[in-house]
Amino acid sequence: MTSLRAELADIRSLEEALHRPEVRRSRDAVEALLAEGFVEFGASGTVYRRAEIIDLLIQEDDNNDGDLRTANYSLTSISRDAVLLTYESQRTQDDGSKRYVLRSSIWKHNGEKWQMLFHQGTIKRS
């Protein structure tokens, strides 16, 4: 494994790929990024499994998300082949309102590449 700093750049790049509409709408791209057994606890409180989230992502349209900004990325090693990525997101809707979410993802290295195994979004309260 490389240094945690180098891994942060790699994992952040993979995480941010999942923010891009062209990646989200590509079944092949999302399947490559999400590990078998993937689970997401959404900020809405909904639990998503891998197949379900892939189906939802590839059906998204460009206009439902608003402007997304991310900040305060941090990476923690949790085993030789797994890391925890945490960060904050801010999404500005078309009406100007903002939604702040604390995010965490577990990325696991399968011997060939990093894949997201778990993701959680939690609404950030003031």
Rank of each mutant, 00 (worst) to 15 (best):
Q90H: 01
E15N: 10
K98V: 15
R103I: 07
A29C: 06
R24Q: 15
R25G: 07
D81N: 15
Y87K: 01
D94E: 15
E31H: 11
E7L: 15
L84Y: 07
A6G: 00
S26N: 12
V39F: 02
T122K: 03
N63G: 10
L68F: 09
E16Q: 12
V30M: 09
T70L: 07
R125K: 14
M116H: 02
L117A: 14
E60L: 14
A17L: 13
Q93N: 11
T2I: 10
G111A: 09
M1K: 09
S105K: 06
L4P: 02
S97I: 05
R69G: 00
S26P: 05
W107E: 07
D28G: 06
H119W: 11
L68N: 06
S77A: 15
Q59Y: 00
S126A: 15
A35V: 09
R125L: 13
D10R: 11
L102P: 00
S104Q: 08
R91I: 08
T46S: 12
E7H: 07
R24N: 12
H109S: 04
V23R: 02
V83Y: 02
D10A: 13
Y73D: 08
G111H: 07
R80E: 14
R69V: 04
G45V: 08
F118Q: 08
D10F: 00
Y87R: 03
I11M: 02
H109W: 15
V47P: 00
R50Q: 07
P21F: 09
N64R: 14
I123S: 09
D67H: 14
D95C: 06
E15C: 04
Y48A: 09
L18W: 09
S44L: 09
H109P: 03
R50K: 08
E7A: 15
D94G: 14
M116P: 01
D61Y: 01
R99W: 05
R69Q: 12
I106G: 10
W107F: 11
L85S: 02
N64G: 14
Q115K: 14
S89R: 06
T46Y: 14
S13Q: 12
D61P: 02
N63P: 00
R20W: 08
E60G: 00
T92C: 02
F38H: 10
I54S: 02
A32P: 04
S97A: 14
S79F: 09
L8M: 08
E15H: 08
A51H: 04
R99F: 08
S77K: 12
R25M: 10
G45S: 06
T122L: 02
F41L: 13
E36P: 13
E60A: 10
W114L: 07
K98T: 12
D10E: 15
Q93F: 07
A43H: 13
L34R: 03
L85A: 04
F41Q: 02
G121S: 08
S26H: 06
L117W: 11
P21L: 15
S104I: 03
I53S: 00
Y48H: 13
L68T: 15
R24D: 10
Q120A: 11
E52I: 03
L68Y: 03
F118A: 06
G66C: 10
S3Y: 13
S104C: 03
L117H: 14
